[in-house]
């Protein structure tokens, strides 16, 4: 499996660490109801098909990446940096 890191280019899966669903990006506000936190931390759509999840290019540029891919075929459709270029000052 290879991920096309937006900074480093196509790299072997072994350079990456996997976290979980991209839902981890949608952190509820501190005063959100308990249900929102339960959903955020635990409950998952877990699709058999297209999903978005988070990978960390640990043995590379250390960017966190949002990967759009298919959980049935392992086809990778897109790999985007979690931190937008705007936020990081246009550098990578």
């Amino acid at each position: 499996m290879r991920l096309n890191c937006p900074h480093c280019g196509p790299r072997d899966r072994r350079e990456f660490y996997y976290y979980g669903a991209a839902a981890y990006l949608d952190r509820p506000s501190p005063d959100a109801p308990a249900q929102a936190w339960d959903d955020y931390l635990h409950n998952r759509d877990n699709p058999a098909g297209m999903t978005q999840d988070l990978w960390y290019h640990e043995q590379g540029c250390t960017a966190w990446l949002k990967v759009t891919r298919n959980t049935v075929t392992h086809e990778i459709i897109a790999v985007d940096a979690v931190a937008t270029p705007k936020a990081s000052g246009g550098m990578a």
Partner: peptide, 10 residues
């Protein structure tokens, strides 16, 4: 390039 040298950071 950042990568790995076997199990080491590189």
């Amino acid at each position: 390039l950042r990568s790995a040298l076997n199990h080491l950071p590189l």
